[in-house]
Structure formats: structure tokens, C-alpha cells
């Protein structure tokens, strides 16, 4: 009877009386386990679902990228428009991650350490970029910053700054969508560590920058790194918002994700798959880094 309840592949232990007590290697007592059939059904259904929805399709992209041999990959990557797009994506990502790092930590400090009217509202609004459509993000920036009839766009255009259809707009769109990631990681850690150590440092004569650098920053270090990796992944992959504000001009304002779309629609499938595989690989690296960081954070 007990052998039915063991996980697959586990050696069947010789049955002894009362071996279903909870103390034995954390095995749950019989009455707290699901019937054998239910557990297998759950396993098969969930693993199958994830396999067919995520794992298999994702692996196919890598296979398709290398389907025409490695020369095709090199050719695709040395294509002028692909090269420029990758470069542009890298630049935009670096800028938006830096901006989100600085403002993210600042806003997190503001939210946790200070009281001010509208704090709860700000805290709720921080999440807006996560749930609003990238297309809406793009439109909203377009309405305010376009040079023709935008609220700020016209003034900025007059002093020679173009935002929409150029790099600043794309950085803004990317920053917008990745905005909450650093904040959401740092806020809980700040709440947890409390401000006793900071107060102690202050009372011993440290000024605000010193306290931040020597006390606060080391404590939130891993949360910041984690937030940065998440915004990196998000920034690399932004598509909808950037498509609207960039104007999608080949060799000029086209990012890697936009190149994937354009190449695919022009029936240059290998190029599309190669760039997609590159983006997917970058995303995977971010995932692995995050998975490796997690244990460190708890220790």
C-alpha cells in the first residue's frame, strides 16, 4: 500500500509498522496526501500544459534560428539594419535601466521613509505601468510630447529637442514600462530592515549621503541588483510602446524587437528567428541570474 504513495523513481523502502508518521523525512502522513491517481493526473496535466505552451515552442525558436547553418546566423547578424537595431536597443536599455535605478531607489526611499500627503495614491499609481497596455503607454507619450500639438512637445521642439520619433522618446517609453520593477523589489526590503541602524548612524554624526552609502545601500544591495536585472529584461523586450513613439524607421529608430516583426513580415524568416533567439537568450540569462540571486538574498 505504501509503495503506491511514493514518488516515481524512489526506491521502495521495506515496509515497517507505522512508517507513515510525519517525522520520517518530512513524508506526509497518508491522510494528508492525495490519492495516487490524483497526484499523477495533476503532474501530467500541469507538466504537459507548460511543455506544450512554453517549453516546446521556445526551444523551436532556437532550432529555427540555426536551421540554415551557422553561416546564415552570421549573415543575419551582420545585416546593416539588424546591427543598428541591436546597437540602438543596447543604448536605450542602458539609459532606461540607469534612470530606473536612480529614480527607483529614490522613490522607494521616499515611499518607505517619509510621510507625505498622497503617499498611498503614489504607491498605487506606481503599479500602473505594469498593468496598462504598452500601446496605451505609447499613445500617452505621443499625445504629450509630439512636436505638432503636444502639450510639452511644441515647446521642446521650439528649443530644438525632439522626443517623439527619436531616441529620447524611446528611452522614455522603455523607462515607463519598466518603472515599477526596481521600486517593487526595494520597498519590501527597506520596510523589513527598518530605520534603527540609519538613526544610529545619524546620531553618531553621519550625514545623509554617508548613512545612505554605508548603511542603507549595503542592506538593499541584492534587491537593487534583482530589480535591475528585471528591468533589463523588460527594457530589452519592449515592443508596443516603442513602436508607437519611435516611428519605426529602418536603420534609424528601429529596435531589435521591431526588427523581428519587420523581418518576419518581409519573409526574411531566418533573420527574424536569429534576432528573436538572441533576445530570448538574453531573457533566459536574466532568468538564470535572478534564480541564482534568490538564495543569496535570503541568507
Amino acid at each position: 500500500m505504501a509503495s503506491d504513495l511514493l514518488p516515481p523513481g524512489a526506491p521502495v523502502a521495506p515496509e515497517t509498522a507505522g512508517d507513515t508518521t510525519p517525522g520520517r523525512r518530512g513524508r506526509r502522513p497518508d491522510r494528508l496526501r492525495e490519492p495516487w491517481a490524483v497526484r499523477w493526473l495533476l503532474r501530467v496535466v500541469t507538466v504537459g500544459y507548460v511543455f506544450f505552451l512554453v517549453a516546446w515552442p521556445t526551444s523551436l525558436v532556437f532550432r529555427n534560428a540555426f536551421a540554415d547553418g551557422s553561416q546564415a546566423v552570421v549573415d543575419a547578424l551582420s545585416d546593416e539594419s539588424v546591427r543598428l537595431a541591436l546597437q540602438l536597443t543596447a543604448e536605450i536599455t542602458v539609459w532606461s535601466v540607469l534612470i530606473n535605478l536612480v529614480f527607483g531607489v529614490t522613490i522607494a526611499m521616499l515611499l518607505v521613509r517619509y510621510r507625505f500627503p498622497g503617499k498611498r495614491l503614489l504607491s498605487a499609481l506606481i503599479d500602473v505601468p505594469l498593468s496598462v497596455s504598452p500601446v496605451v503607454v505609447g499613445l500617452s507619450l505621443l499625445l504629450v510630447y509630439n512636436g505638432r500639438d503636444g502639450l510639452f512637445g511644441r515647446t521642446l521642439e521650439n528649443i530644438g529637442i525632439q522626443i517623439i520619433f527619436s531616441a529620447p522618446g524611446m528611452v522614455m517609453a522603455t523607462t515607463f514600462v519598466a518603472l515599477p520593477l526596481v521600486i517593487r523589489e526595494v520597498v519590501p526590503v527597506l520596510q523589513e530592515i527598518g530605520d534603527e541602524q540609519e538613526q544610529a548612524a545619524r546620531s553618531l554624526g553621519a550625514n545623509a549621503p554617508q548613512t545612505f552609502r554605508r548603511i542603507t545601500l549595503p542592506a538593499i544591495k541584492w534587491a537593487v541588483v534583482y530589480g535591475v536585472v528585471l528591468s533589463l529584461a523588460r527594457s530589452l523586450g519592449e515592443f508596443g510602446a516603442v513602436k508607437i513613439v519611435s516611428g519605426n524607421i529602418v536603420n534609424q529608430s528601429q529596435t531589435a524587437t521591431l526588427v523581428v516583426e519587420q523581418k518576419y513580415q518581409n519573409f526574411e524568416q531566418t533573420s527574424a528567428y536569429v534576432v528573436a533567439a538572441l533576445l530570448a537568450a538574453a531573457a533566459m540569462v536574466c532568468l538564470v541570474v535572478v534564480a541564482l540571486l534568490r538564495p543569496k538574498e535570503t541568507s
Binding site: V54, A55, T58, V61, P134, A233, L236, G237, E238, F239, G240, T257, L258, V260, E261, A276, L279, A280, A283, M284, C286, L287
Partner: peptide, 9 residues
């Protein structure tokens, strides 16, 4: 993976 993957990908 779906979190990390760019939507167009």
C-alpha cells in the same frame, strides 16, 4: 519564461 521573453518573441 513568459515573463522574461519579449512579447514579439
Amino acid at each position: 519564461v513568459p515573463f522574461a521573453l519579449p512579447t514579439i518573441v
